[in-house]
Simulated scan of single mutants.
Amino acid sequence: MRWTITTTPFDDPEADRLRRAQREELDARYGVSDHEPGVPPSAADVPVFLVAKDAEGVAVACGGLRPLAEHVLGAGVVEIKRMYTVPSARGTGVATAVLRALEREARGLGARRLVLETGTAQPDAIRFYQREGYQPIPLFGSYAGSDNSVCFGRRLDDSLD
């Protein structure tokens, strides 16, 4: 199956629909509605947000990039935010396609390294990132000390394209 992956404003209605679906799924997994440490991403700090649509034009996956302040993990580090795939599209390869597109976009932003946080109640996400070449890293920034967070990172010169 092929998807169309396009850069979309963070506050686009389809992007918002996907992020709301992600929030509902995370609320169900964690049993709480406030499970993200730190400042939630927004249009102001996510310069790249991608949405993947299926052959019928339905938005099925998304992900964004938020550059981190140099004092957090050094220069050239960008965080992946709001990576999500609707359940009906999981296992189709669309998440990998979005991840690779995010990696290309991050290189365009001058990033040397990508990092991300996912949760301990998301073993599917943990397996996905490890399979895609991301390595566990210490909790960083607002995730430090979180009992529900797992962080991963990957140097962008380790190309899997």
Rank of each mutant, 00 (worst) to 15 (best):
Q22D: 04
E24M: 12
E24C: 07
D27N: 15
D27A: 13
D27T: 15
D27S: 07
D27P: 04
A28F: 04
A28D: 14
A28P: 09
R29I: 12
Y30Q: 08
G31R: 04
G31V: 01
V32M: 02
S33L: 03
S33I: 05
D34E: 15
V39P: 11
P41V: 13
A43K: 01
A43V: 03
A43N: 02
A43E: 11
A44K: 00
D45H: 00
D45I: 00
D45K: 00
P47Q: 12
P47W: 05
P47C: 07
F49W: 01
L50K: 06
L50S: 09
L50A: 12
V51G: 01
V51W: 00
A52S: 03
K53D: 12
D54W: 03
D54N: 14
A55S: 14
A55Y: 10
E56C: 06
G57L: 03
G57T: 04
A59L: 10
A59Y: 10
A59W: 07
A59G: 15
V60N: 00
V60M: 05
A61R: 02
A61L: 13
G63C: 09
G63V: 08
G63H: 03
L65M: 06
L65R: 03
P67A: 09
P67G: 14
L68S: 14
E70D: 14
H71C: 06
V72E: 07
L73R: 05
A75Y: 08
A75I: 01
V77H: 04
V78K: 00
E79W: 07
E79P: 13
I80E: 07
R82C: 13
Y84P: 10
Y84R: 07
Y84C: 06
T85N: 06
T85W: 11
T85F: 11
V86D: 04
P87M: 05
A89V: 12
R90K: 14
G91N: 15
G91K: 11
G91T: 15
T92C: 14
T92V: 15
G93T: 10
G93V: 13
G93P: 14
V94Q: 06
A97G: 13
V98H: 09
A101K: 09
A101R: 12
A101Q: 12
E103S: 05
R104F: 11
R104M: 06
R104S: 14
A106T: 09
R107C: 14
R107F: 10
R107V: 14
L109N: 13
L109Y: 10
G110V: 08
G110T: 05
G110W: 03
G110R: 01
A111D: 09
R112C: 10
R112N: 13
R112M: 11
R113L: 02
R113M: 03
L114S: 04
V115G: 00
V115N: 01
L116S: 05
E117P: 08
E117C: 06
G119C: 01
T120W: 02
